[in-house]
């Protein structure tokens, strides 16, 4: 039973048997957590860190995260950069176009609370949680790729812990 040694978390051995038993929930959420395709949504300098994370040095792909250019194919928005009031309805529209279950990571100070544009700015939205529900906040200005990776791992943990019908209630 080599398979069971490889996947001890979510498979149980039946004594003397050759079957692997698990739940639909576990398999589904494992699959979701390890194939989080994210929407390309870089609006400012955080996008540079996002690109760096996606490149070979940090290798986002090893978490199963591949960028998609269409919201129809994406599971996750990484809001990387300042969201202005002009951009806010566009972000909401992209979020609405994504198929459920969908997740949002707020990357950097601007998306959390306006960041360096909190004061003396007429144009910047003070936090994207006014616009879309946020799952993970990653502080930093901009956050290093390590922070982004850790944020994504936390999101994967969150997905693995959720119940099958959780996202329908959102």
């Amino acid at each position: 039973m080599g398979l069971i040694k490889k996947v001890p978390v979510y498979a149980e051995r039946i004594p003397g048997g050759s079957l692997v038993l698990t739940t639909l929930e576990t398999v589904l959420h494992q699959g979701q957590a390890k194939s989080l395709w994210y929407l390309l949504f870089g609006t400012a300098c955080c996008a540079i860190e996002l690109m760096c994370t996606g490149a070979s040095r940090y290798d986002f792909d090893r978490l199963g995260m591949i960028f998609r250019a269409s919201p129809r194919q994406a599971d996750l928005i990484i809001a990387a950069g300042t969201i202005t009031k002009k951009m806010a309805p566009r972000l909401r529209r992209l979020y609405d176009q994504m198929a459920e279950p969908r997740y949002v990571i707020a990357m950097g100070g601007c998306t959390i609370k306006g960041g360096p544009f909190y004061y003396d700015s007429y144009a910047v939205e003070k936090g994207i949680d006014h616009i879309v529900p946020v799952d993970i906040y990653i502080p930093g200005c901009p956050p290093r790729p390590e922070s982004l990776l850790e944020g994504c791992i936390h999101l994967q943990e969150k997905i693995k812990k959720q119940k099958l019908l959780d996202w329908q209630e959102k």
């Binding site: 909190y118 004061y119 003396d120 700015s121 007429y122 144009a123 003070k126």
Partner: peptide
Amino acid sequence: QGNPMRRDWDAPDFEKL
């Protein structure tokens, strides 16, 4: 909310430094 680059401009969610 008017013309935001004017010096006397103000808005409900505008925070002065």
